[in-house]
């Protein structure tokens, strides 16, 4: 029996298009804010982790590549990567690097820094990306786009590596957005948590 596909099952197209568009015009990187704001709004509004569960384009893309296309070893991930404290540590690291990116954008906005047309992969490797920028926008708007695209490309690369090495959606286990939305849900529904969990947190 073939089930009719739901619209959100095609959201992987959004994630794939996002990465591709960034090669042509870096300003498309601003669209990535949707992937940050929508999950937070959903979980704060009481919708739980519906974003991760249904609407996350990256999750869909990893599921498709690793699942249907078989680009995953399908092995279980090592204990360290699925440890709760690793997840919280990774979220903290991610937020620090994100704040740094915002600060660099502020420096360009205030005139104290100049625009750098590079995409930084894995927080260290600077890739020349000047061909994707030829607009006349304010320098800080472009700086934010380069910074944000760096965040998105880095997490996509880590996600694809985790997919290939372990199970398709291994990235979801330590995804900073997923950790953040789960923490919001747990804070909102603290009374419903099992007692054992409250004692252990």
């Amino acid at each position: 029996m073939k089930m009719k596909k739901k619209w959100y099952e095609y959201l992987w197209i959004f994630s794939a298009a996002y990465i591709v568009l960034g090669f042509f015009n870096i300003l498309f990187a601003w669209l990535g804010l949707l992937c940050f704001l929508i999950p937070l709004v959903i979980s704060i509004a009481g919708g739980g982790k519906a974003y991760c569960n249904l609407y996350c384009g990256r999750g869909r893309l990893l599921g498709l590549l690793g699942g249907r296309l078989g680009l995953s070893r399908g092995k279980e991930m090592p204990g360290l990567l699925k440890n709760r404290w690793f997840r919280y540590g990774f979220l903290a690291f991610f937020l620090i690097m994100f704040s740094n990116m915002l600060f660099v954008t502020y420096l360009v906005f205030s005139g104290a820094g100049s625009l750098r047309e590079v995409v930084t992969l894995l927080w260290t490797i600077k890739l020349p990306w000047h061909w994707a920028y030829n607009s006349n926008v304010a320098p800080w708007v472009a700086q934010f786009a380069f910074g944000f695209y760096s965040v998105m490309l880095t997490s996509t690369v880590i996600g694809l590596a985790a997919m290939a090495l372990y199970k398709p959606r291994s990235w979801c286990v330590f995804c900073p957005m997923g950790t953040m939305t789960q923490l919001i849900c747990k804070a909102k529904n603290r009374r419903l948590l099992p007692k054992s969990e409250i004692q252990r947190t």
């Binding site: 982790k49 249904l54 699925k82 979801c172």
Partner: peptide
């Protein structure tokens, strides 16, 4: 293991 579960929804 609800203590460790990340609620990603892959199982659903």
């Amino acid at each position: 293991d609800s203590f460790s579960c990340v609620a990603c929804g892959c199982c659903v």
